[in-house]
Design a protein around this nucleic acid. Sequence first.
DNA 1: GGGGCCGATGTTAGCGATGACAGGCTTTGC
DNA 2: GCAAAGCCTGTCATCGCTAACATCGGCCCC
Lengths: 357, 357
Amino acid sequence: MTDETQTPPKRPLTLRDVSEASGVSEMTVSRVLRNRGDVSDATRERVLEAAKELGYVPNKIAGALASQRVNLVAVIIPSLGNMVFPRVMTNISEALDQTPLQPVVGVTNYLPEREEKVLYEMLSWRPSGVIIAGLEHSDASKAMLRGAGIPVVEIMDTDGTPIDSVVGISHRRAGRMMAEAIAKAGYKRIGFLGTKLSLDHRARKRFEGFTEALAKAGLEIADQEFYEGGSSLQKGREMTEAILKRTPDLDFLYYSNDIIGAGGLLYCSDHGIDVPNKVGLAGFNDISMLKGFSKRLATMDSGRGEIGTKAAEIIAARVEAGDEGMTEGKGVRIELTPTIDFGDTLRKRPSEAAYPE
Amino acid sequence: MTDETQTPPKRPLTLRDVSEASGVSEMTVSRVLRNRGDVSDATRERVLEAAKELGYVPNKIAGALASQRVNLVAVIIPSLGNMVFPRVMTNISEALDQTPLQPVVGVTNYLPEREEKVLYEMLSWRPSGVIIAGLEHSDASKAMLRGAGIPVVEIMDTDGTPIDSVVGISHRRAGRMMAEAIAKAGYKRIGFLGTKLSLDHRARKRFEGFTEALAKAGLEIADQEFYEGGSSLQKGREMTEAILKRTPDLDFLYYSNDIIGAGGLLYCSDHGIDVPNKVGLAGFNDISMLKGFSKRLATMDSGRGEIGTKAAEIIAARVEAGDEGMTEGKGVRIELTPTIDFGDTLRKRPSEAAYPE
DNA sequence: GGGGCCGATGTTAGCGATGACAGGCTTTGC
DNA sequence: GCAAAGCCTGTCATCGCTAACATCGGCCCC
């Protein structure tokens, strides 16, 4: 009886099955399926039909092994819960869509040992490039990245020494800029609210830049409040309440991200606190989802969209050039400039004179 | 520690390099690195040292081809911007952490043709299982899923016929439940605000269930407002303004998700609209990040955390059982019960009698 | 003391694709 | 009319690793 192939797939299909079904060699089938080399229209059609008929899906594992080419780009980020990273991912995907490359995500949860593990796993698939958040990695991770012989782009942060290429902003500078704006606006009693800084290096650097620039203006942090775990409006609200109860004379609150900052804003509205005159507020990251509050929270754009795009482009260019390694001065360095958005919660000048809205 | 490891990687390392460095056969090295079979402690140690010294990272491509085992689970979701999906992902990752399996994400942007492409790409890596959002797929996608010979779990939605296993809630039922609560609370003039429903099947089903149950209560949708693109508070705010200007006598607004619902809530607060008495509000999905508003938006928990965990467990169990196919009645069906959270924006009974809080 | 067995290692043959090259069969140019 | 130059297709070796089996000394036990 003829093998009418509606049969449930006992054994996964291979090129051979298609080649037999269409009466040509495996090689020809392979050529058709990859659109490579010359194949007559007649056979091409016959092969395609057979492949579709059988429902053949090529085995990239075998393909990659044979061709020594794996069109994957490892993207390693700390978290998916942070909104910033999905955004970066989206841009990376879009940029890579123009190329044969494809992103694969790995999540580290801000833990160096997890980063190491994830990196190892990813590298064992021999990707064509790596995009990884941050400049701080364990020695083992650094060694792996260097040894992989593929382009590496570290993203988000530029305060440090990159392994290869880097695209990001200086978080120290971002912190300084915000501090300068705050000092210039005449705020004096400044509170900081953020994550426990130990593992979030970028938040830490912003904090450092922030205190440094405050110091230069003759100011210092009057109180601070830390939290662990994911960000939420609720947490911002609670922390704001706590810090204001403890230190009622604070006149500015700097949050390490927009989510908790927005929570603080809600707290202030609910309690009739005059923002930005009694208390000023600022966050970080320009989470567009949050636009829509009655007052726009002052924040800073970290250029995360562009970061993703640029990083992907660097990888794509290097892979296309066949120059997969990171010889000589191939490393690109792109430092974007963060821009401050005063919103409605950060005055532009001292409040002595009242500026009606 | 000799720093001879500075060797610039000319040619990627293979098992052979390690085997030569440690003076045993490749096979033995392979055994050591996989912890399989008996190897004497002496050689094990020698091999491990050599591997570390060289910075060897095994090639999973070759390993997978040889062993016919790829410990990846394809997870296909519509978007990373939606918060719901990162949450599901997180739970899947956690559940798979107990196993040798690893998730790999693909994003479809709610487009069937992209879903098809992403699925094809993923299947060509021969994963051990597939977790895919929704029950609606193109014929080609369905054929691929059926033909892949691996366990498939469709998640989020149970209204329809699964290919294999399914874990989720009935969105029709969720819509009905909300409609019943609204009707019971005595709201009469109901508005709906949501995405253009064409491609978001789950939102569509909620809408259908919602109108159906309203009809049963003798009510109908008085007005509706649709949007495209990502959700944001701003969008919720604008849509709310639009619908209320057009149909000022609406006394309830049902939003297709919490983000735009929260935007509506902000609009109402700002305009002194008495919620929930003049107008009631409800969203969907219980986005915990949004807790912290002065009023808690009524919403519904879709059990997305549990969905991820259960889906991963189903795959893991099937893979472990070596029963990778989906023969007979292997398909598991888990329908979770959505729970309604009245928050502060949905009355529990008609407002004739005033119930002080 | 020799058969049996076991632990430790090596040998061989693929896994399913692709690269390089080797042909047949047509065309083309002069 | 015949060599050179295509097209189109096939053969063969290989990618780096692992399954399965083969091998080789002990060690145990009757």
